[in-house]
Design a protein around this nucleic acid. Sequence first.
DNA 1: CAACTAAGTTAGCTGTAGCTAAGTTAGGTT
DNA 2: AACCTAACTTAGCTACAGCTAACTTAGTTG
Lengths: 154, 154
Amino acid sequence: MDSPRKRTSTAQPRAPADHAERFRRVRDAHQSETAEDYVEIIAELIGEKGEARLVDLAECFGVTKATVNNTIQRLQRDGFVTSEPYRAIFLTDKGRKLAAASRERHLVVRDLLISLGIDPETAEADAEGIEHHVSKTTLEAFRRHLAKQRRPRD
Amino acid sequence: MDSPRKRTSTAQPRAPADHAERFRRVRDAHQSETAEDYVEIIAELIGEKGEARLVDLAECFGVTKATVNNTIQRLQRDGFVTSEPYRAIFLTDKGRKLAAASRERHLVVRDLLISLGIDPETAEADAEGIEHHVSKTTLEAFRRHLAKQRRPRD
DNA sequence: CAACTAAGTTAGCTGTAGCTAAGTTAGGTT
DNA sequence: AACCTAACTTAGCTACAGCTAACTTAGTTG
């Protein structure tokens, strides 16, 4: 017996080194990353070309078609996309919502990095990894900072 | 035939949507995350108690001892730690170096978040996920921003 | 309309990262 | 010295995320 997933909210009296919960959250974020990245790109492709093909996704992510196929099946299972054999991939409502939120967050993160003097190239690249770990609270703070930057004297 | 891992630096003439390289970097970051998190915590435990026990790591990360055992074996294989059966875990030079760098980066990221008005609690939590995706360039920019904050009139 | 090709699928492999359950070992207690 | 118990290990499972190789389908083109 050894189950670490229990203490979801036992209100430990200020655990000495409560890393556990934080790491749990990072692990959870990793779970959602793939979905977020895929729906974001799918939305982009649909916007650009009207549809998202498996081969385009493979190209975009730099992985094989087989890998994309696997992932799409998972995303379909989880209700983010619809796809029929040999046909293009489309987003469900759930997928579209996630895509919009992800995109917005991505842009905020990227712009924040730029606002700190990071070159757009690097900002774009780092935002890709960072975005998935930015909590609501932090995202809000980023937005506030950007707003402040835009109208310095106020 | 379908290998996406080839184009390491073929200097494509400004690829239209060169997401691929970015995503590749995010995947690479994920690879190193575990190592960074572990050596950081191991260093901390050694600092506090003189040694790092498997059971403490399990507690810290909120995973089972079996999982930690696996991970430690991988870290040993990769030359970050030394460990003998039923004994505590210690860092190699390589491990210590990684731990120091990770810790420093972690602190910079956390402090940057705090400097943007995020509460320390959240900053600490988000830093945990974000730190692994902060490039050298970005880290430098973070440091500059912190330095500027500390002496506003200059 | 036949055939070719690009797109998509399937099968089967690897490695990481988690888990449970059951077994060992080391070290402290009696 | 014997024995408990906590710490550690091992075995065997799941899911994700990648790969290659081989196959099928759809769509274009001669």
